Amino acid sequence: NITNLCPFDEVFNATRFASVYAWNRKRISNCVADYSVLYNLAPFFTFKCYGVSPTKLNDLCFTNVYADSFVIRGDEVRQIAPGQTGNIADYNYKLPDDFTGCVIAWNSNKLDSKVSGNYNYLYRLFRKSNLKPFERDISTEIYQAGNKPCNGVAGFNCYFPLRSYSFRPTYGVGHQPYRVVVLSFELLHAPATVCGPKKST
């Protein structure tokens, strides 16, 4: 009989979030998941669920729940959905087409922007091929755009693959930082360890 609440607040209220290319994953298990708490945590810009209804979450049980978190800019949030393409979905964080879970995003301009520009958040701009779903690539190998090998040196047709967002508070919403948490629900042929409040007794 599990009584402890799932530590969603640790994920959502973390002081620092990860850069999207090096997104963070927390496995959540053996706890009571009260998803209604999430609705009250922040004024969400996005709370979209796929393959599951957000209002039914509190009635369900899962084997595992994974919470992935990272920062992107406002106009990239739409890429965090099944079947999307674009720089983020292709080279940084890719959801599977049959994704079961929820994408939660909110504006973090007050936390993640600086007047002089916050350069701490990076994204991958160049990659030889698209990522597979939930693949994480943290390599910093020089990207070869031409025929000549780069031998690890940046220059003509040889690019450092990561680029930094420079978040400034005066930017338009599309270029402001957004914190994203992706909850993916895993149903294996194994005992369910993460249940809503109704199912945990």
Score class of each variant (00 low, 15 high):
K26F: 09
N157G: 03
D68S: 04
I88S: 03
L95P: 01
N147D: 07
E141D: 14
A192S: 14
P54I: 14
K148W: 09
L188G: 15
N87W: 13
F8W: 11
Y165W: 02
Y39I: 13
D75H: 10
T201L: 14
Q79W: 03
L122Q: 14
I88P: 01
P43I: 08
F70K: 02
G172D: 00
N64A: 15
F167N: 00
E76R: 03
F185L: 09
T170M: 07
P161V: 03
F156V: 08
K110I: 07
K110P: 08
F156G: 05
D90G: 08
A14S: 10
P96C: 04
V52F: 13
R27K: 15
D137I: 04
S164R: 10
A145C: 05
R163C: 15
R25S: 05
L5R: 13
Y39E: 12
A154G: 09
D9C: 07
A154F: 05
L111K: 13
I80F: 02
S166Y: 05
A192W: 12
A18C: 08
N92W: 02
A81C: 06
V194L: 11
N92V: 02
R163S: 15
P161H: 04
D137S: 04
S19T: 04
T85K: 13
N92R: 02
F17T: 03
S113A: 11
G117C: 02
V77M: 09
L111A: 12
S53R: 11
D90S: 11
V11L: 11
F160E: 14
D97R: 12
Q79K: 07
T3D: 11
G83D: 08
L188I: 14
N30V: 06
V71A: 05
S29L: 08
H189S: 15
L131I: 13
N24L: 06
A190T: 13
L187Q: 14
L162Q: 03
P161G: 04
S29Y: 11
L38Y: 06
V32T: 13
R127P: 00
F167H: 01
R136H: 08
K132R: 13
L38I: 14
G174A: 07
L5N: 13
Y35T: 10
D75P: 03
E10S: 11
K48I: 08
G152N: 12
L38N: 05
A42Q: 15
K132G: 11
S116E: 15
D68W: 04
V115M: 12
L41E: 10
V20F: 02
A18I: 04
T46A: 12
D59W: 10
F185Y: 11
T170I: 01
N64V: 15
C102S: 02
V181Y: 04
D97Y: 10
I80S: 00
